[in-house]
Simulated scan of single mutants.
Amino acid sequence: MELTTFLRHLSATARSVTLGAPVPDADNKAGAGAYDPVTEIDRAAERALRTAIEEAFPQDGIEGEEYGLVRAEAPRRWLLDPVDGTRALICGLPSWTTLVALVEEGEPTAGFIDAPALGELMIGLPGATMLNDRPVRVSGCATLADARLSSTDPYLFAGAEAAAFDRVRRAVRLTRFGYDALAYARLAAGHLDLVVESGLHRHDWAALVPVVRGAGGIIGDWEGGSDFSQGRIVAAASTALYEQAVAQLR
């Protein structure tokens, strides 16, 4: 099956589980003193995605937030976050997404950010990102003073990271919080210019990379490189804007 067609198939597979489902009860994966919610919708959507991938590409590895990794030795791997933004889901907000990435030899090469409640499927491929089959591009914003910044939650940051993020926040035109992976889709479509986050896991960021890059954007780490292992992510609408944000974060 052609890759774009298969990515659309995966989106439809997850939507058949998530879209229109009643707001579920949530379990807390974090234990006492913290809150990391997961619902049966998260689990069921990941199971459905895994089944679809197993049927089409039984030799590929699969790594998901809820059910871990199979076939770690495979050169191709699918990264799954069945519901990114479970807090939004259980609050009845439409900003939650499904994230799927295809990783080849360790590099995310294709993937999607799907916002089912909004009817928005954004697929990122080498050299192109499409929103509901229409090409999108980043804004090209080149200065912090003009930038529209987003981050999931100001309380993601503590200590030196909080101070670093605040330097960026004070330098930009405006800041909006609360959108999880949807912020990266909005950046790819030209409606936001900068996203800064910390604490992301591989299943959180893998799909963001091809979506942002396919739309002409820059996505890297807080040091100006591409080491995402620490979960510290900067996505920007231009190289100049990325470099200015990194200078503030340092």
Rank of each mutant, 00 (worst) to 15 (best):
A26P: 02
T51C: 00
Q248A: 14
L80Y: 07
D133K: 03
Y155M: 13
T51P: 00
V209Y: 07
R232Q: 14
E63G: 07
A12T: 11
V100I: 11
P75L: 02
L194C: 12
G217Y: 05
V17C: 07
N132M: 02
A160R: 15
L149D: 13
R87N: 07
P108E: 04
A32T: 13
L3S: 08
G119A: 04
V212Y: 09
A88Y: 00
S16G: 14
L7F: 12
G31R: 05
V103M: 07
F57P: 00
V212F: 10
A147V: 07
G217K: 10
A183I: 04
P58W: 02
G68Q: 05
P82Q: 12
S198K: 13
V172R: 07
P210R: 05
R47V: 04
R137P: 10
P126N: 02
R186Q: 14
D166K: 15
L3I: 11
L192V: 02
V246M: 08
L19G: 07
F228G: 11
V212S: 13
G61A: 04
L79Y: 13
T5G: 13
A147S: 12
F177I: 08
M130Y: 12
L249N: 15
P37M: 11
L182V: 01
A101Q: 11
V83Y: 03
P108I: 05
S150Y: 01
M1L: 09
R50S: 05
A34P: 00
Y179F: 15
R137H: 14
A128H: 01
E161H: 15
F57C: 05
E63C: 11
R43A: 04
A21Y: 05
L144N: 08
I90M: 02
D84S: 04
F112P: 02
E105G: 11
A189F: 01
T86H: 10
D81A: 04
G85R: 10
A206N: 09
W222I: 09
Y155W: 12
D114I: 06
E161L: 09
E223M: 12
A164W: 07
I219H: 08
L194M: 12
L200M: 15
W222F: 14
I233N: 12
A164D: 10
R87G: 03
A236L: 07
A207C: 04
R170G: 15
E40S: 13
V209R: 11
L125R: 15
P116G: 07
L89C: 01
A88G: 06
L125G: 08
K29S: 05
R167H: 02
R169F: 10
L79H: 14
I123M: 09
V136H: 07
E161Q: 15
Q244V: 01
L187F: 00
R134D: 12
T97K: 09
P24F: 12
T51L: 08
T98E: 11
A171H: 10
A162M: 09
Q244L: 09
H201E: 14
A188N: 03
A188M: 06
Y242C: 03
L182N: 01
G68L: 06
R50H: 05
G199S: 12
E63L: 14
L144D: 07
G92I: 10
